[in-house]
Design a protein around this nucleic acid. Structure first.
Lengths: 241, 241
DNA sequence: ATCTCAAAACTTGGATACAAGTTATCTATT
DNA sequence: AATAGATAACTTGTATCCAAGTTTTGAGAT
């Protein structure tokens, strides 16, 4: 049993954009979602024939993935999906908590009817979400909307990028225990209440509580994962230097 | 007068690393330092013959530069050095202030004799610096050392990346008015004093004062630059879409 | 002289060929 | 059988080639 699963199918519905970007997003999703688990070999030629494109776009995608430490490239040797590191996980939380709490504080100053309605709608959509994946999309949109309201759109880009390592663990919490989703929605509501009341301290406190709740759950999952990983020898795939 | 200056010389002293990385760092430095001003055409083939390498490494470098918004790539049309944007400048300040103040607060908990000595030495080197460029190097090292001390090395990577847009403006302040360097060194000393005394509030306050001082000066330069830019028509170089 | 339109001279995106280094494999030797 | 070494089968890095789109340019008509 030497062959890995092949969750990759050829990308055909090209949205007109660059192939490299499509490959990047595809691989990004598959790594974050866990479809391509840590250690999975990522040979360029292999990905080429699976995705039906040449090396150039695949290579660009891999380099970008290596830039955000989702893939490890060992020159002339091989590339693999990077391990889920507890350090990266913790640093992502650190960055997110500090930046996003600061964003909420700023957002209070710029709240208007449009943002209020938008955020309310997103919470409604979260309540109506049928699947964890659907909830997750509206969750992300909620936080991004707050960032946009605070007039610091680029800060969200930074959060989004570091959040990747957080999400690698988090997606497990959403599928393992979807029961806590209502709690998260309630916390979103608290944040929005603070914003609507133009109460900076309340909004920031609610956001911090929320982010730490998400972190606490993910961290629990992570610890369990680490134990399991320790049990398995985990040989397979090429190695360093 | 159609030709631009050509501050690029062939890279020869290859440090064994990938050509793409060498090209990236070279172009990054030249853009941040202002040697390649905003609007400068960055045609791949042109850069190829100037640097003495093929399109592949040049292309990879340009893509990475575009990822951090230092270069704008217009497919099938052309690439140029991105303009210095006040938005990016302000967002960089936002991110840096919030993250670095948080880092200092954390650093207080992990201060030890080694870090203390290291930071003291860097301040001495700053005092002894003969040129603004030399001071800048030790300045950066000082801040990075604090980040390392706080056990969040990756956070510094994030700051470093966003700081790029800040430094595009800042290098002008260092060459225009090197006289304020002693003030910056004094502020570094204040931060260090706070860390040495394990006084979190003092260290954070000193850091915030310091960062805002740097921002204030750079912002002044920026405003003046904007006026000058308004005076010049600034035609030249290919355009969008 | 000005405008229209076609064609040539760019540009970057993608595919392929080649180079250089690493790892696995297989053979010969002990 | 076990080991050492050569060799073949990978891998990524770099160079070049082709494709596709954009911009310029210039010729011809008005």
């Amino acid at each position: 049993m030497d062959d890995d699963l092949t969750p990759l199918t050829r990308l055909e519905g090209k949205a007109g954009r660059r192939l490299a970007d499509q490959v990047y997003e595809r691989l990004l999703d598959d790594i974050v979602s866990g479809a391509l688990p840590p250690g999975t070999p990522m040979a360029e030629l292999d990905l080429c024939e699976r995705l039906g494109v040449s090396r150039t776009p695949v290579r660009e995608a891999l380099i970008k993935l290596a830039d955000v430490d989702l893939v490890r490239i060992y020159p002339q040797s091989g590339s693999v999906v990077a391990p889920v590191s507890r350090e990266a996980f913790g640093e992502a939380q650190f960055i997110r908590e500090h930046l996003e709490c600061a964003l909420v504080a700023e957002a209070v100053r710029y709240m208007d009817a449009t943002s209020l309605r938008e955020l309310n709608e997103l919470i409604e959509k979260q309540k109506a979400a049928a699947t964890p994946a659907e909830f997750y999309a509206h969750d992300e949109a909620f936080h991004q909307t707050i960032a946009r309201t605070s007039r610091h759109p680029h800060v969200w880009q930074v959060i989004r990028q570091t959040k990747i390592h957080f999400d690698r663990v988090r997606h497990l919490t959403l599928i393992e225990d979807a029961g806590h989703i209502p709690l998260l929605i309630a916390q979103h509501q608290e944040i929005l209440d603070g914003l609507a009341a133009c109460n900076e301290a309340q909004a920031v406190a609610a956001m911090r509580r929320h982010l730490r709740e998400v972190f606490r759950r993910a961290d629990g999952i992570f610890a369990r994962q680490e134990e399991m990983a320790q049990a398995e020898p985990r040989t397979r795939a090429r190695r360093r230097r």
